[in-house]
């Protein structure tokens, strides 16, 4: 079964179309980079994929069910841009954040040993175990993103969706962060990455989807580099062509 299936998906904000007639699938084990110029509808498409928005027409199927009805909180982990910027002042420890990932499994019952183990493992995998008792707001941007990933791992998520996760993160931490994503992907996690930096996507993702409202390319990242999709997609949004081409 595909992780995601989009069939002819269209979405508008009022009368301003954001996504038009997009069809594509994401298979288990894919590391899909979703690229496109600013305002191209990348984030909107991601929200449609996760069921945070409902398409005007067409359908989005997430793990075999309509995405907006999908309520199995254990299969999808989401790392938003806001996750690190917002919640600035909220006193909450790293462990508390990662524990949230376990909530869909636990419901109202008490935490069992298995739950605590998963939380500790998740902290270990992303390399923040030593920060477990720190207040989240005192971490660097890169550390915060790792913690939010650990939350998804604690949930035993099969799909990890990230929306420009390294905005405001320094270059060195970014490299390490994408290495971590690649490692998790090789261990079987399906990754869906919205990213404005095309270099990152071609270097780390196995598959690329390039959109500017419409889908300009969807395929292996090697083929993407050799195709004209980039020029075509970015050409439709002239002012950003030069900025994104180095």
């Amino acid at each position: 079964m595909s992780v995601l299936e989009l069939a002819d998906v269209t979405y508008s904000y009022g009368d301003r179309p954001a996504v038009e007639n997009v069809s594509m699938t994401v298979e288990p084990g894919d590391f899909l980079g979703l690229v496109g110029p600013n305002g191209s509808g990348k984030t909107t498409l991601l929200k449609l994929m996760l069921g945070l928005l409902r398409p005007d027409s067409g359908s989005v199927t997430l793990f075999g069910r309509p995405a907006h009805e999908f309520a199995d909180g254990t299969r999808v982990g989401y790392v938003s841009q806001a996750a690190t910027r917002k919640a600035g002042g909220m006193p909450v420890t790293v462990r508390e954040v990662v524990t949230m990932g376990r909530y869909p499994h636990v419901g109202l019952r008490r935490f069992r040993e298995r739950d605590t183990e998963r939380i500790t493992e998740a902290l270990d995998i992303v390399g923040v175990a030593d920060l477990a008792d720190r207040r989240f707001s005192t971490l660097s941007g890169g550390q915060k993103q790792r913690v939010v990933i650990a939350r998804a791992l604690a949930a035993d998520a099969e799909l990890l969706a990230l929306d420009e996760p390294t905005v405001g993160v320094d270059a060195e931490s970014r490299e390490a962060f994408y290495d971590l994503l690649r490692r998790l992907n090789r261990e079987g996690l399906t990754v869906l990455l919205v990213e404005h930096d095309i270099g990152v996507v071609t270097a780390f993702a196995t598959r690329v989807a390039c959109i500017n409202r419409r889908l300009f390319f969807h395929g292996d990242s090697i083929d993407f580099s050799e195709s004209d999709a980039l020029r075509e997609a970015y050409g439709a949004n002239q002012q950003l062509l030069d900025h994104h081409h180095h």
């Binding site: 199995d72 254990t74 989401y78 949930a155």
Partner: peptide, 22 residues
């Protein structure tokens, strides 16, 4: 007391909470 876990999740990260089925 009954909704504490969900409230904490929503307070911290509303979108992620929604995706987590809350």
């Amino acid at each position: 007391a009954v909704s504490y876990r969900q409230l904490v999740y929503v307070t911290f990260d509303e979108s992620a909470a929604r995706i987590a089925g809350i």
